[in-house]
Amino acid sequence: MNKIKSDNDRSRKRINNRSIAFVAASVMLGLGLLASSPAHAVDSVGSVTQISGTAQIERGNATLPVQQGTPVLVQDKVMTQAGAAVTLGFVDGSSIGLSGSTSIAIRDRGTVNGQTIASRVTLISGDIHTVVPDKPGQPPAEVNTDNSKATGASPNQ
């Protein structure tokens, strides 16, 4: 014997099925958005804050043109052409300025106040100027290179 369900029972079942379908679609959409979000959001250690001239980033097997706002990731190699200049800014307020015909590689990252920053940068060729933000009770530190020597000193010395 078949039991006949009332219209009210059928409506509840349809509503439940629709609710399940809606929840499943929302979860899939959310996962899709997470999967499609740029990798640099997680791996970024800084970004290009200023540029004049032409520069590129080697990222894996790709060479990307540098523009203001371009994220910088661990393992990126940043290269400037002759006459170009690029400044890379980091969340702690520090920066690295690259002059023309300069190449650096971002080798490692660290965490400062819960934010990811570049912790090791290798100068491959050329000239850089770095600025490290003030720390309480200490003057700001700077590092300047001319590819034949590296110096680190407080500007007050």
Score class of each variant (00 low, 15 high):
residue 1 M to G: 15
residue 3 K to L: 15
residue 4 I to D: 11
residue 4 I to K: 07
residue 4 I to G: 10
residue 11 S to L: 08
residue 11 S to Y: 14
residue 14 R to G: 05
residue 15 I to C: 05
residue 16 N to K: 15
residue 16 N to V: 07
residue 19 S to A: 10
residue 20 I to F: 14
residue 22 F to G: 07
residue 23 V to T: 07
residue 23 V to R: 00
residue 29 L to C: 10
residue 32 G to P: 00
residue 33 L to N: 01
residue 36 S to W: 00
residue 37 S to Q: 06
residue 39 A to W: 08
residue 41 A to H: 06
residue 43 D to P: 00
residue 44 S to W: 08
residue 44 S to I: 03
residue 45 V to R: 03
residue 46 G to K: 12
residue 46 G to P: 03
residue 48 V to R: 14
residue 49 T to F: 03
residue 51 I to M: 07
residue 51 I to D: 00
residue 51 I to S: 03
residue 52 S to G: 12
residue 52 S to R: 10
residue 53 G to N: 07
residue 53 G to C: 05
residue 54 T to S: 08
residue 55 A to P: 01
residue 55 A to Y: 01
residue 56 Q to V: 09
residue 57 I to W: 00
residue 58 E to D: 08
residue 58 E to P: 00
residue 59 R to D: 04
residue 60 G to F: 02
residue 61 N to K: 02
residue 61 N to D: 15
residue 64 L to D: 00
residue 65 P to A: 06
residue 65 P to W: 02
residue 65 P to K: 04
residue 69 G to M: 10
residue 69 G to W: 10
residue 71 P to A: 11
residue 71 P to I: 03
residue 73 L to F: 00
residue 74 V to T: 13
residue 75 Q to H: 11
residue 75 Q to D: 14
residue 77 K to G: 06
residue 77 K to A: 12
residue 78 V to W: 05
residue 79 M to E: 14
residue 83 G to H: 10
residue 83 G to W: 03
residue 89 G to H: 04
residue 90 F to K: 10
residue 91 V to K: 15
residue 96 I to C: 05
residue 97 G to C: 05
residue 98 L to Y: 03
residue 98 L to C: 07
residue 98 L to Q: 08
residue 106 I to M: 08
residue 108 D to W: 04
residue 108 D to A: 12
residue 111 T to W: 09
residue 112 V to M: 09
residue 119 S to I: 08
residue 120 R to F: 06
residue 122 T to R: 11
residue 124 I to A: 04
residue 124 I to S: 04
residue 127 D to A: 15
residue 127 D to M: 15
residue 128 I to M: 09
residue 129 H to R: 10
residue 131 V to A: 14
residue 131 V to L: 14
residue 132 V to C: 05
residue 135 K to G: 02
residue 140 P to H: 12
residue 140 P to I: 02
residue 140 P to R: 13
residue 142 E to Y: 07
residue 143 V to Y: 05
residue 148 S to N: 12
residue 148 S to H: 08
residue 149 K to S: 09
residue 149 K to E: 07
residue 150 A to R: 07
residue 150 A to V: 09
residue 150 A to C: 01
residue 151 T to L: 07
residue 153 A to S: 11
residue 154 S to D: 11
residue 155 P to D: 11
residue 156 N to T: 14
